[in-house]
Design a binder for these strands. Structure first.
Lengths: 142, 142
DNA sequence: AATCATGTTACTCAGTAAGTTACATGATTT
DNA sequence: AAATCATGTAACTTACTGAGTAACATGATT
C-alpha cells in the first residue's frame, strides 16, 4: 500500500481502483477493501463518477509508515503470540512474562522506527533516486 | 513449548506425549510433531516402550529462547512481509528497502534478546518464585 | 508374547485472506 | 433526463494454513 500511496502522490489526478489493481497484480475490489482503511483514516479520498478514483488527502509530511500500517489494518505485528492453556500454572506465567517482555521491547523499536519515517521522506528519496540513477549508487541499496 | 521444556526439566523421569498434550489442551500427535524439532536439534530425547517418553537432553545453560524458537520451527518472526509484484518498479524498490531496513533492525533486537535468555535462567526464576511466593512480589510481574 | 510409547503418514476440519460476482450509490457527461 | 463511469458493499467461492484425528509401523520394556 505504501507503494500505491507514493504512486498516487506522484500521479496527476485520481487513480482508478482498476489501474491500481493491475499495477500490483490484484483486482479492483481487493484494492477498494484495503484502501478503505486509509480513507477512513483520512489519508486518501475517493471520488465517484467520470474521472473519479483515489487521491491523496493528507500532508505526506505528517503521515508515517506506522500510521499507514495501522490504518491498513494489521493489529498484530508479530507472528508469535502467547499460549494461555492453564493460566494458573506458575511455569506458564513465568514463560509468558519473559516472552512478553522481549516482544514488548521489539515492538517498541518497530513502532519507533516506523513512526520516524514519513511518506514525504520516502517520496524525496524517490526524487533523489530518479535524479541520480545514472551517476550515483542508489541510497540504501547494496 | 518453553512451558513444556521447563516442566520436563523439573519432572523426574520421562514425560509421555499424552501427559503433555493434556497439560496444554492439545493431543499427543501434535505434541510429537512439535517436539520433533527440538529432538532433531538435540535439546530433548524421546524414549520408546514402557516408561518411555520425553526427557531433556541438553544443558539448560547452553540453550536460549532463540534456540528453542528456531528449533520449534518458526522461520518467520514478523507478520508482515514485502510484496514483489513488479520488481522493476522504482517505487516498490525504494519502499521495500525502507521497510526491510526497519524490519532487519527489529529482528536483530529480537534475536539478541531471545538469545540472551537461557532455559536455565528461566528455571532459576521459577525457583525464586516458588520459594518466595508468599513473602515477596513475583519478579517481572506487576 | 503382550504391552506401551513414540514415529509417521494421510485424512478431515476450522479459520483466514484473497478472488469473484453482483448490484447499489453517486458524479459526470452528453 | 439518460447514459456512463467509478466507488461501496455484500455474498459467495477458492486457496491455504494449522490443528485435530485415525491408523499403522517401530522399538523397548515387562
Amino acid at each position: 500500500m505504501l507503494h500505491v500511496l507514493l504512486h498516487m502522490a506522484r500521479h496527476d489526478g485520481p487513480m482508478k481502483s482498476e489501474t491500481i489493481g493491475t499495477m500490483l497484480g490484484t483486482n479492483p475490489v481487493v484494492v477498494r477493501r484495503t484502501l478503505a482503511g486509509l480513507r477512513d483514516a483520512g489519508y486518501v479520498r475517493s471520488e465517484k463518477g467520470h474521472g473519479g478514483g483515489w487521491v491523496i488527502a493528507c500532508d505526506l509530511e505528517r503521515v508515517s509508515l506506522l500510521d499507514v500500517y495501522r490504518a491498513v489494518g494489521g493489529p498484530r505485528l508479530f507472528a508469535i503470540g502467547n499460549e494461555h492453556s492453564n493460566p494458573d500454572c506458575a511455569v506458564e506465567q513465568l514463560v509468558n512474562t519473559a516472552v512478553e517482555d522481549v516482544l514488548r521491547d521489539a515492538e517498541a523499536l518497530l513502532v519507533k522506527r516506523l513512526g520516524a519515517v514519513s511518506l514525504a521522506e520516502l517520496s524525496r528519496g524517490l526524487d533523489a533516486r530518479c535524479a541520480g540513477v545514472s551517476r550515483r549508487r542508489l541510497p540504501g541499496v547494496d
